[in-house]
Structures are given as structure tokens and as C-alpha cells.
Write a protein that binds this DNA or RNA. Structure first.
Lengths: 215, 215
DNA sequence: TCACAGTTTGATCAATCGATCAGCTAGCTG
DNA sequence: CAGCTAGCTGATCGATTGATCAAACTGTGA
């Protein structure tokens, strides 16, 4: 039973330039993120993911030990992209006053979630099941939640947003921002708008900021 | 796992009924609505639904021809309850002026979605897959969408809500209202609030109305 | 009373799921 | 060169899926 030892976890310390597994791994993770977000954990099959990545199905169990751990790797990559994006945006606003910076951060959140609805979809899926995968997600979301709540508390003190308890404001923002894009297919059918177009995304960011900040 | 050979129905009243199908059918539909919303179409198995309804699994194929049609029956029942609830609320507000009536309707929508998140969860699940089941849902949502857009257009003309294009306001409302409760398990972990408690629900309805209507 | 029809169930089907295993390939190492 | 090993695949496993079928139960009408 003990054969070639499968790499247990995703340790970036592997400096091997062998037949280089990393590109293949990345393709699998990207395909997994897409299919898990589109069809949910149960709905996406390992064969579909393998086909989308252009590899054989057993390779998923080779690189990741199970479907569950492949899901975790996909979630990790999505959170990494989101955190990187928000950090970049924050770093680029060093000199700006707090309220203007907050407005731009909200805009960034809306536009990012419009073009990357996968993470929101996965969180919505797992939140209904409420299993151990929800624990995993909550640990990733918590830093973002804490930072956002602190931001809203500060803005409310400054009078920039209505004095609504921060947790409620948080769920109003995370609902009002991405829902139009998470429900993209529905939105297209009902309103005729294309939720992937730049104009619609900008208009929605305008709407959310207008409602939150008053103008 | 109670599998008595006599019918396992724990019904205290067995007076008149022949094996009439309707009560059993209703139990199956209710169990299907719960499990489909909690675990998605693929995640919920027909055996789980049958067990929750207290019947054998082949009975689902007897009353409904397939899993797909059972899902449609569950969706129908959820939409029927929602439409009935909103119609009742609307009928009870005959003499009230338009703006006050709109505020109370928004409150009703928020509190209803808080206590009945199943429908929102199902729509969110299917919107990511975007298959024929999304067509089925869109046809049910369309009347609600049209009515809400017309309402927002009227409110914007009256100056009661910010002059934001109605489709964007619609998705802001359908996002800001139910998301805290659709993400109930996440909300409990991150904020410590109980999204099923009356106080939290009322506070969220306050917050949404405050943001939409300004006061 | 008895046969009939609507309900319900246990047994079981083919299909598909995630996972495992042995074996093939290719590149580095000595 | 030969040997080794990480990367990868075809074949296949047991478990579970939705669905089907014959048989059994039960109240009702004749």
C-alpha cells in the first residue's frame, strides 16, 4: 500500500523544478473553484473538475487527499485573491481621508464581488448546510468581518453613515453588494440587464454607495 | 429507524380517513422544501426526504414522477405561502397612504424572509447553476419583481426613496433584507447575534427601512 | 361479504459517485 | 548508462444515487 508518497499538504517549500506539478495543481484548483461555486460541493463531481482541468480524475486524489481537501484548497485560493485585492486597494489610499477611503473601499468590494462571485456563492451554499465546511469558511471570513465592523463603527461616529448597529450594516452591505451578481442569471431574465457589463456594475456600485453614504 | 409493519403514522386522529393521499403528499412536500433548501437539489437525497416525511422512498416516485417534479412541487408550495402572505399584508393596508404602506411592505418582506429563508436559499442555489430549474424559478419570481420595480419607481417619483434605478434598488433590497438570515450560521459565529430571535429580526428590519427611506 | 382501486412498501435495478491500486512515463542523479 | 522517484493514468472498487416493479395493505362500493 505504501507507494510513491503523495505530497500530504500544499507546502510551497517544495523547490523542485521536476516535471513541475505546480502548474497542474493550479489548474485543478482553478477548475475546482469554478465548479464548486457553480454547482455546490455535492453538485460538482470530481470527474467534472478533472475534465475542466484537463487531467485524469485520480490525479485529484493524488494532489489533494480527498474531495474535501480539494474544496479547502479552492476556498484558500479564492480568499487569497480577495485579501490581496483589498490589501492592494487599502495600500493605494494612504493619504486619503477616512470617509473617502471608506467609500472607495466599498466600491472596490462591490466591483470585486461582481467580477468574482464565486466566493460569495460558496459561502451562501455552505451557510445553508452548516457543517464543518462552514467552520472553515467562518475562520476565513472573520478577519474581514472584524475589520468591516470596526470601519462602520468609526464611520457612524463620524456621521458618515446612519447610526445603524455595525453587524446589521455589515450584512446589508454583503447582501446589497453581491446579490445582483450572485443572482446573475435571474437578474438577466427579470430585468434584461447584463450583470457582467461594466456599466451595470458601476451603476450598482453607485447605488450602494449612495444608499450607504447618502451621496 | 422505526419500520413497523403496520403504518407507522403517529396520528392521534384516525377517524374518517381512508389512506387518503393528500396528508402524506403534504408531509413529503414540506420535508422536500426543508431539505432542498438546506442541502440543495443534488445534496438532498430522496431517501433523506422520505425519512423526514416518515414514508418509504419509492413513495416519492409514486406521488411525484421524479425528483425534479418533487422539487417543483416544493417550490410551488413555498411561493404560494409567500404570495399569500404578501397579499394578506397588502389587503390589510387599504386606507394607508402609499409611502407608509411601502414601508410596512418592506418590513413584512424582511421579517418574512427572516423566518422563511428556504425560498431565498433555493433561488440562490439554482441561480448559480443556471439550468432549467432557474427558468422555473424566474417565472415564479417575475410577478414579484415587476410589482416591486413599479413600487420603487412610484416611491422615487414621490421622493420617498433615493432616485436609484429600480432594478438596482430591487437587488439591494433582496440582498440587504434576507442575507443576514440566509447566512444565519455564519452570522451566529461572527457576530454572536441570533438571527432567529425577534429582537435581531426587528432590528434588521429597522436598519433596512432606515437606509431605504431615510428616517 | 368480496372484489376493486388507490396507497404504500421491500427488493432491486443500472448509473454514478469518490476513492484506491498497480502500472506507465519522464526527468534527475550517480 | 542504469536506477530511482515524482507525476500521471486506466481499470476498478464498494457505496450510494434515483428509479422501477411486484406484492401487500386498506377503505369503499357493489
Amino acid at each position: 500500500m505504501v507507494k510513491g508518497m503523495p505530497p500530504t499538504t500544499a507546502q510551497p517549500e517544495d523547490r523542485t523544478t521536476r516535471p513541475s506539478a505546480d502548474p497542474t495543481r493550479d489548474r485543478i484548483v482553478a477548475a475546482a473553484a469554478d465548479l464548486f461555486s457553480a454547482r455546490s460541493f455535492d453538485g460538482a463531481t470530481t470527474r467534472q473538475i478533472a475534465a475542466a482541468a484537463g487531467v485524469a480524475q485520480p490525479l485529484l486524489n493524488y494532489h489533494f487527499r480527498s474531495k474535501e481537501m480539494l474544496w479547502q484548497a479552492a476556498v484558500d485560493s479564492l480568499f487569497t485573491v480577495l485579501a490581496q485585492r483589498m490589501a492592494d486597494r487599502f495600500a493605494g489610499l494612504r493619504g486619503v481621508d477616512a470617509v473617502t477611503r471608506a467609500k472607495l473601499q466599498v466600491r472596490e468590494f462591490v466591483t470585486f464581488s461582481a467580477r468574482n462571485p464565486q466566493l460569495h456563492r460558496i459561502i451562501l451554499q455552505e451557510s445553508t448546510t452548516d457543517g464543518p465546511r462552514m467552520d472553515y469558511l467562518a475562520d476565513h471570513v472573520r478577519p474581514l468581518y472584524d475589520a468591516t465592523v470596526a470601519l462602520f463603527d468609526d464611520l457612524a461616529r463620524k456621521g458618515a453613515v446612519p447610526s445603524i448597529p455595525a453587524p446589521h450594516l455589515y450584512y446589508i452591505l454583503t447582501g446589497a453588494g453581491p446579490t445582483m451578481f450572485v443572482l446573475g442569471p435571474e437578474c438577466r431574465r427579470l430585468s434584461g440587464l447584463d450583470p457582467t457589463s461594466d456599466e451595470v456594475i458601476e451603476a450598482h456600485a453607485d447605488a450602494v454607495c449612495r444608499l450607504l453614504f447618502g451621496d
